[in-house]
Design a protein around this nucleic acid. Structure first.
Lengths: 351, 351
DNA sequence: TTGAAAGCGCTAACAG
DNA sequence: CTGTTAGCGCTTTCAA
């Protein structure tokens, strides 16, 4: 199995006794337009097929000064989030001339930087990224050279000190969805509503926590700070949550009768921990998550949640990227996608 | 936000009044070796940094006649399988000079072909692919041009009619794992052991079903064909399984007291269907899956299964690709990775 | 209707 | 110690 050096268009041209230009024209389908004789066209096409000619994208891209690539840097492939988002993106990219190139940063700043730098060197024509906190410098670099950058899912917070990033965004309007979730708990008769989330300095994440507080305030329900837990992500998350739950449900103190959980992944971990401690759901505490991960609807789990419009987010991000490539002068495109489909399941059964 | 044409090494050279060669040498770290004066080196590096120079990979690859890319074509990003496999691959690729480029075929022949053709045009130096039945022609094309091809997870069946594909393989020795799973059922006291799988003409998939039959035969247990169901994948899987279950558990006939299920994904669907029909697990029928997907261990599900060594598979596939790139003349590398870690959970509690 | 030639950005051999 | 030069495979004028 020796590596056979790939056939080049020059080889085809030599064999056929035509020029490389002719071959190129024909293989790009410009034959008829450029009035190449039908016999020549046929001979070129036949030769290409017989020899298994595959055009060299690298050379082509260099010549055309375009890569035809859109970088997609996701956090990871966990919990079917990427699956759903990419299905949406695929719908937009598949028929077109741009190819998404997927990579993951795994919540690691170094990997994140590395993947974005790779996109820069590949001359990706746009980049869609699930952002990481504290990486504003890298994002600024993209802004500086004018490569369209689309934040997916979340976006860096708008702080007074930092220059706002004029980047585009495609994500779930999860503040609105939070209202749906928390109101559902209230409608079901829960009154002591706590919140489990993460300390994650990103705009949408913080919006969820803020929206939780607003809804409680509007309903004249107490916001008990002891019922709110926002541990740092990363590290031994499982252990951290267990500690927080132990604190909240310590004997002798009043514990929440419901918890609004930042996302389904966290909610699933929480359910396991509650199970271990024999805290019954929903009798002792009701749980609602966010996202509607595929398995949340499973009979053994039946987690109440609100559906995240992932496919739609993927489509929106893809469209934003294409629009910005077509019109580089455009203002950033911000798609706050609504999604309030409540999935009321067993974990929020009425008291 | 105008697209600023990226800085080239020629621009840097002009500004500094040195030649493009000097710039190239310095930026590739060959400065000291080639005895470029430290001042020149520093000036070049400073200029590159200040101007935000990012080397053009396209041009570099064209010149070096290597892409540095290994194509990875997976089926999809569902159920964390890709997450685990890619984590393993990352361990091998991250420190090296090759970059994995991930794409999905979504079990679609057209997309599958398209992604492999893209790899061919990109001049990927090796391709790792989760194979699809009936695509032998495409694989042969890779063999023909001598591009290392590594099948991941499963491999095309070795049929007498087809020329065997001399491709490499990295996958789970799931025939051995099947023994573990089925023996576990027997050990737990189950005797009427059925099997739910898929009709999927791939080698390892069929090996699992074959191993199931062998274990039963060795244990002198009956193999009741009515308890074996191998519906066609794709289409309305959920409905198909429901129908099969209705048949197996029709009143008045003897039904299996345990089911060996091809994989966890299928087993999870099955659990839902059994729940709907009020067939109790494990009292009415025990269930064991294959794979140990992350959520199978969740308290609400607690599916017995055997762990699939996905990370190890990813590592093995990556190593195979690298070895074959280094030594193209090598014989195909076949890694049948053992993995018999049983996860005995609630769905196979003793009768 | 086809061919000749230039050039995309980069690297490496060779010359000085 | 640095510069000159050729060329990777392809597309696209421009000329014939």
């Amino acid at each position: 199995m020796t590596i056979r050096p790939p056939v080049t268009s020059a080889m085809l041209a030599n064999q056929l006794g035509v020029s490389r230009a002719t071959v190129s024209i024909v293989l790009n389908g410009h034959g008829p337009k450029r009035k190449i004789s039908p016999t020549t066209i046929q001979r070129v096409l036949d030769a290409a097929r017989d020899q298994g000619y595959a055009p060299n994208r690298t050379a082509r891209n260099l010549r055309l000064q375009r890569s035809g690539v859109i970088g997609v840097v996701l956090a990871d492939f966990r919990m079917d989030w990427a699956e759903r988002v990419m299905r949406g993106m695929g719908e937009v990219f598949d028929p077109g001339e741009y190819t998404p190139l997927v990579a993951t940063h795994r919540w690691d700043a170094v990997r994140h930087r590395k993947e974005l730098m790779a996109a820069l060197q590949r001359r990706d024509e746009a980049v869609i990224v699930q952002p990481l906190p504290g990486q504003e410098a890298v994002y600024q670099q993209f802004m500086a050279v004018g490569i369209p950058l689309v934040f997916l899912g979340d976006r860096p917070p708008i702080t007074p000190t930092s220059t706002p990033l004029a980047a585009s965004f495609a994500g779930w309007d999860s503040a609105a969805a939070t209202r749906t979730a928390v109101r559902h708990l209230i409608d079901r008769g829960y009154r002591r509503i706590g919140h489990l989330g993460f300390h994650h300095p990103m705009h949408m994440t913080q919006e969820r926590t803020a929206a939780y507080r607003r809804v409680l305030a509007e309903a004249n329900l107490p916001v008990n700070e002891a019922w709110i837990s926002l541990p740092h992500a990363g590290g031994a998350v499982e252990g951290t949550i267990a500690t927080e739950i132990a604190r909240m449900f310590a004997p002798g103190i009043e514990h929440p009768d419901a918890l609004f959980v930042l996302n389904d992944g966290l909610a699933l971990q929480l359910l396991d921990i509650l199970d271990q401690r024999d805290i019954r759901v929903p009798q002792d505490v009701a749980i609602i998550g966010m996202g509607d991960l595929p398995l949340t609807g499973h009979s053994g789990i039946s987690l109440s949640t609100v559906r995240e419009p992932c496919e739609e987010m993927g489509r929106a991000a893809a469209h934003a990227a294409l629009s910005l490539i077509a019109e580089p002068e455009r203002a950033p495109i911000v798609s706050l996608i609504p999604g309030n489909e409540l999935r009321a399941r067993r974990t929020t059964a009425p008291v």
